[in-house]
Design a binder for these strands. Structure first.
Length: 839
RNA sequence: GCCCCCGUAUCCCAAUCGGUAGAGGAAGUCGCCUUAAAAGCGACGAGGUGUGGGUUCGAGUCCCACCGGGGGCACCA
């Protein structure tokens, strides 16, 4: 490329040579743009010429420029992508933008512009920053979810899912954000009842909305996590399990006077003998159906009170139990007892059946309720002798099941919980009053949003035909051009006000009809973007199934913890739906998943209000891309948080300069055979490469950097106080350093590779091969322990036999002294490293 | 309350199968360089692994309990 030294500043005596960070960055960006070395070749994979690897990192939302968080995730991701290329895989490493969403809309209202203005300007800014940041993306596959060519297929997928019964519309109470003026999915409401996006308190509103039937795959989504346990970062699989919330139990059917039987879900069928009342969610239709005329006034007054209470009040778990008697009685199917039916707000209408059997002896909530309203309490599990609580929900023998002296067709007394459960379920099935079942916490995914900047739902509502799908040939349903004040939230979608857009002929009957005026949750867009990357410019289909077969599933996915349940669960749902549509054969989208930690500053999250934000641009300006990337990768294991205050980009730059200096001190010619070189250095070099392979496979990138630093130190020593820069082993070592470094600090690595006489790019170099003979040390230090205490160290051959090592150890004078004539009862030999004598 | 993860040197962190606790970096100290300082270059030390038990010839690593930190779920029956 360039002749040695022109881009480098070599300064005077006593001071070390350094390279000029900025000019090196400019130079290699030009070279990469020409070479385009990161383009993925579909044919290489479909024709089986190379093994594929699909590396994916979450595409950003285009709000402003990249920040430190992006810098970390992209730096980590690039290590894997570049490593796989080195190892000869055909690597698909695409990038795009998740470019629909509220911030663009809010900016458009503020500035009286179109959301696209903000969106596409930011995309260009981020694109330039990514290129400067030296990332090895295949830019030919760039996509934006807000492009009509993209959302056309989002709409198409919506229609396909609807055909499968996986998308449907229903009226129900939904989460409503008064700030954003839109509904939210359950997943977008935080545990404290506030909106995850804007922090406003979420309220409930009765609306007809579109849903994806995620619950159809609840069991499969849950079970699939087992197979991902070892390749997904553990906490994410755990979070998904908690979110899906599988619980095993039983449905129990209670006869109710004057009504159809009422079914409840319980995880403790064994406590049925202790059921002394039934409680129904006050806001469930069931409560309204059960209440007698005599009790209706009281019931409705209570219900009004409950409705006025906010979610935040409801979520306070230490609140006193409240409720009203509905005036009806049910029959306990085991005891035949008449039990009262109450309405309460501690039972949830949309979990299980909205009704619960009250077992005060075994459930603390029921205990509190029974105490408050003077209902009978029966223990059905024997608590330990020292138990001091109220309700007892632990292990123990069944008691009072039935009560002493009572005849019963089912007798659980004395049985442990698990056996009592299965015996009860068997009995309920026999008397046709229940069955074993599994219940999930997971709800269907509410996807309608009353906002503008998203994919319109491709449905037409016709007074004659009802819901009619927009024909595929008419996709995409494009957004009307709205800007500024037209986008202001007003409780209905801004699309509703665009009358000329809304009013269409019904695709079925041709009569006057109206478009659906909601847009899809932007999580729909990102649930399938990794499919679109396979054939991003295909205008005949969402993606090419043959390429999905060739490239899928994603081999490595890196992203943020904040998407542990939302995006990852939705993407898994879409993948299963696409499988059932026959478009793909595999059913988990991400073979391995890693989430990186956050970049914080001084122990705290970076934020404007704290004034502790670190500006990525300023860091890059000061230290250069390579040093910033190196700092982020080296800081800690990828999944841990990085406190920027603990880090030293100065130290990183110092190291990079030292590494670069090696390339100037190599005096042997390119291509020199290393086999005659200094063996000690060659051992370090080959051991480093071998270890780097293992570390990279297990994503321990920080340790790879540390090993590279060791190799640099060893090479420096060899040059200054060893065999010198002419030794071929020094060249070999420097060339390994360049390649290891290229995964983290591509600019300086290119510069080194160039100075070492290679062209055109280290990104196209081959991975160094490891000579196994050099992995075996010449001699190793064996430790001799007496009673576990180190008494002697012996230099021995690595292939020493156990017997020889034992003999050597027993003959050592220090060891003999330590044994001090005592009887050696046992000798543990782990050749070649250890001997332990037990006396 | 239930479920996961993590506690190693002043700090960030290493330590394949249980086998000499220390690789790397930062800070520090001391040199060199400098009129001086910073930067740069070179050298150096440092703890017995959160606590208490257990298993083992041998535990940072495995088991139990507790303490501390982080995360997920949560009136989910």
């Amino acid at each position: 490329m360039s002749e040695q030294g022109t881009d480098s500043t070599v300064t005077g005596t006593g001071e070390a040579a350094t390279y000029d960070v900025r000019s090196v960055e400019q130079k290699w960006q030009r070279v990469w743009a020409e070479l385009d070395p990161f383009r993925a070749d579909d044919a290489a994979v479909t024709e089986g010429r190379r093994e594929k690897r699909y590396a994916l990192t979450m595409f950003p939302y285009p709000s402003g420029d990249l920040h430190m968080g992006h810098a970390e995730v992209f730096a980590l991701h690039d290590v894997i992508a570049r490593y796989w290329r080195f190892r000869g895989y055909e690597v698909l490493n695409p990038m795009g933008w998740d470019s629909f969403g509220l911030p663009a809309e809010n900016a458009a209202i503020r500035n009286d512009t179109h959301p696209a203005t903000y969106t596409y300007a930011n995309i260009e800014t981020q694109l330039a920053s990514m290129k400067h940041y030296g990332l090895s993306f295949d830019w030919s596959r760039r996509l934006h979810t807000s492009d009509p060519e993209y959302y056309r297929w989002t709409q198409w997928l919506f229609l396909k899912l609807r055909e499968q019964g996986l998308a449907y519309r229903k009226n129900s109470p939904v989460n409503w954000c008064p700030q954003d003026q839109t509904v939210l999915a359950n997943e977008q409401v935080l545990a404290d009842g506030t909106c995850e996006r804007c922090g406003a308190e979420v309220t409930k509103k009765e609306l007809t909305q579109w849903y994806f039937r995620t619950t159809h795959y609840a069991q499969e989504l849950y079970d699939g996590l087992d197979a991902l346990q070892d390749t997904w970062i553990g906490k994410v699989a755990n979070a998904q399990r908690n979110w899906i919330g599988r619980s095993e139990g039983a449905h129990v059917s209670f006869d109710v006077e004057g009504h159809d039987p009422v079914t409840v879900f319980t995880t403790r069928p064994d406590t049925l003998f202790g059921t002394t009342f039934m409680v129904v969610a006050v806001d469930a239709k069931l409560a309204d159906a059960l209440v007698t005329d005599e009790h209706r006034a009281e019931f409705e007054a209570y219900r009004d009170d409950v409705r006025k209470a906010t979610d935040i009040d409801r979520l306070a778990t230490d609140r006193a139990k409240t409720g009203v008697f509905l005036g009806v009685h049910a029959t306990n199917p085991l005891t035949g007892d008449r039990i009262p039916v109450w309405a309460t707000d501690y039972v949830l209408a949309d979990y299980g059946t909205g009704a619960v059997m009250g077992v005060p002896g075994g459930d603390q909530r029921d205990w509190e309720f029974a105490t408050a309203f003077d209902l009978p309490i029966v223990r059905t599990t024997e608590p330990p002798a020292d138990f001091e609580g109220e309700a007892y929900a632990g292990e123990g023998a069944a008691i009072n099941s039935p009560a002493p002296g009572v005849e019963s067709a089912l007798d659980l007394n004395g049985l442990p919980v698990a056996e009592a459960k299965s015996a009860t379920i068997a009995h309920l099935e026999q008397i046709a009053h229940g069955a074993g079942t599994v219940n999930f916490r997971l709800r269907d995914w509410l996807l309608s949003r009353q906002r503008y900047w998203g994919a319109p739902i491709p449905i037409v509502h016709c007074p004659a035909c009802g819901e009619v799908a927009v024909p595929e040939s008419e996709l995409p349903v494009r957004l009307p051009e709205l800007r500024g004040a037209d986008l202001k939230p007003r409780g209905t979608s801004p699309l509703g006000a665009a009358r000329e857009w809304v009013e269409v002929a019904c695709p079925a009957c041709g009569g006057p009809a109206e478009r659906d005026t909601d847009t899809m949750d932007t999580f729909v867009d990102s649930s399938w973007y990794f499919f679109r990357f396979l054939s991003p410019n295909d205008d005949t289909q969402a993606f090419d199934p043959a390429l999905a077969e060739a490239w899928g599933p994603v081999d490595f996915y890196l992203g943020g913890d904040e998407h542990a349940v939302l995006h990852l669960l939705y993407a898994r749902f879409f993948t299963k739906a696409l499988r059932d549509l026959g478009l793909i054969t595999w059913d988990e989208p991400f073979t391995s998943y890693l989430s990186q930690g956050k970049v914080i500053n001084n122990g705290r999250k970076m934020s404007k209000s704290l004034g502790n934000g670190i500006d990525l641009g300023a860091q890059l300006e000061q230290f250069g891309v390579d040093a910033v990337r190196l700092t982020l990768v080296f800081a800690s294991p990828p999944e841990d948080n990085i406190d920027w205050a603990d880090m030293s980009p100065t130290g990183s730059l110092r190291f990079l300069q030292r590494a670069w200096r090696l390339s100037g001190d190599v005096t042997s010619a390119p291509g020199t055979d290393a086999s005659g070189g200094d063996v000690a250095l060659r051992r370090v070099t080959h051991r480093t490469v071998a270890e780097a392979e293992t570390l990279l496979e297990s994503h321990r990138f920080n340790v790879v950097v540390a090993r590279t630093m060791e190799l640099v130190n060893a090479t420096r020593k060899a040059i200054d106080s060893g065999p010198g820069g002419a030794d071929p082993a020094v060249r070999e070592a420097a060339e390994v350093v360049a390649r290891l470094l290229s995964m983290v600090a591509p600019y300086v690595a290119e510069e080194m590779w160039d100075r070492l006489g290679h062209a055109p790019s280290v990104a196209q170099a081959a991975w160094p091969s490891v000579d196994p003979a050099l992995l075996v040390a010449e001699s190793v230090t064996a430790v001799v322990q007496v009673q576990g205490k180190v008494r002697a160290r012996l230099e021995v051959a690595p292939d020493i036999s156990a017997a020889d090592l034992e003999a050597l150890a027993l003959a050592d004078p220090v060891v003999v002294a330590a044994v001090d004539g005592r009887e050696v009862r046992k000798v543990v030999v782990r050749e070649p490293k250890l001997v332990n004598l037990v006396v």
